[in-house]
Amino acid sequence: MTKKVIIIGGGPAGMQTAASLLDLGIKPVIIEKSDRIGGKLNDWHQLFPTFTPAHEVLAKLKGSMKDARVITGTAVESIGKDGVSLSDGSTMEADAVVVASGFNLFRAELKEELGYTIYDNVYTTVDIEHMLNDGKVAMKDGRTPQRIAFLHCVGSRDEKVNQRHCSKVCCVTGVKQAMELKAMFPQSEVYNFYMDIRMFGPGYEEMYRRAQEEFNIHFVRGRISEASETIDRRVQIKAEDTLIGRPLKMTVDMLILIVGMTAGESNRRFAETKGVELQPSGFVAPADSFTLNTCSGVPNIFYAGTVTAPKNLGESINEGVAAAQQVARYLNRR
């Protein structure tokens, strides 16, 4: 009898789970709430630390799971004992479910003091990826920026917005974008305001060093406390340079907020209905954080990707492989 596996979410982790299940002879169904698969990778321009175009990775993932059935524009409302209920009112049976529902981006407008959606030239890293994809990075009125500031940890490690966790990949994203903008505007000054630079992945630290030595990007250890708009629609920022112990005020053409990863909005409902644990950050807790990272504790429910924690792309894809293995093992034992 053919085993039925539903993958919730068609981002990189879900796509890789599908690809790996296909390799194992299992034909899964991906249910994706948006109108296309690829998740947030669709929005990305180039990937750190290699500056590989995101669409190349996306194409590989799509190619490897092309035999999987994909249902887009449909959300999973709840997970039952033997299947899922969908937003169109139908139900779908499943022997196993892989939750790969991903993460949300922190809503930068909640840090109101930074002026996102209030001031013209305050952007997020996502906006910059869109601009890079469109081939034009510019101020709101089309001017070329001469001075650009990035602010790290917006919505990460911040108790005031109830986001105590580190989003892990924002540091390297900020450094990557700083290098991209400096390459695009060699005459510009680029500043990165940080509290820590956490370069955890292979090649990240080397990239950070290149940013300083070859790209002359200025790294200032200090948080930006507030942003205001000047009369010519530039952005005045205030910070403290904690290495020299002095307050700092400067005016920049663009302020770019490096937004963090927050737990997916469906996590809480999922946890309440299925009795699985949530971490304090709102990400779901795996059955064991060392040996069972892709298991939920409920025998037929598995996890892949950032539903459990912020991860980079490589880690999310690896979890797709691991989740598929766990699913296959579970199905074989039944």
Binding site: E109, L110, E112, I118, Y119
Partner: peptide
């Protein structure tokens, strides 16, 4: 003046 989340 444009405002945001706290306006209401």
């Amino acid at each position: 003046m444009k405002r945001n989340s706290w306006q209401e």
